[in-house]
């Protein structure tokens, strides 16, 4: 599109600075759902590796437990668990919205707040569980 083709009200304020865009809460929960999904897809490799090792033998199980006991691995496992819970909670919100729940502006705002609230709770519980 060229400017002369587009002669709508040119007195409107224009902001093309992406760093100052304000993302509404539902937009933030949406992008986090995507980021957590991509991260979980990659993290599946870690989970399958640990599952295979833990099921291989008594000794393999002990090795898997030892690996999961390292500080770095605990942080990684906490991130995976939190990502999984977040993706699950945001996914349930998605399904409820498919059923027509919370589709208004206020409903979407409330849904996003509940999603983030539950996710923070899940992250805390996952942390308490791992440490």
């Amino acid at each position: 599109m060229t400017p002369d083709k587009f002669t709508v009200k040119d007195t409107r304020p224009v902001n093309l600075d992406i760093t100052t865009f304000k993302f509404p809460l539902p937009a933030i929960t949406s992008i986090l759902h995507r980021i957590s999904g991509v991260a979980l897809f990659i993290a599946t490799a870690i989970l399958l590796y640990l599952l295979q090792l833990s099921l291989s033998s008594e000794q393999g199980f002990s090795e898997a437990v030892a690996i999961m006991d390292g500080t770095l691995m605990k942080i990684v496992l906490w991130a995976i668990t939190t990502g999984l819970f977040y993706h699950l909670i945001a996914g349930v919100k998605h399904l409820l919205m498919d059923l027509g729940w919370g589709e208004t502006k206020q409903g979407a705002q409330l849904g996003a707040q509940i999603t983030l609230g539950l996710a923070v709770l899940a992250a805390a519980l996952a942390g308490a569980w791992i440490w």
Binding site: F41, I42, A45, L48, L51, Q52
Partner: peptide, 19 residues
């Protein structure tokens, strides 16, 4: 993505069914 999915599928089957 397809390659990784194929690896997960075969790897997963070997874990759940093979071991």
């Amino acid at each position: 993505c397809v390659l990784l999915i194929a690896v997960y599928l075969l790897w997963g089957i070997s874990i759940f069914w093979g071991s």
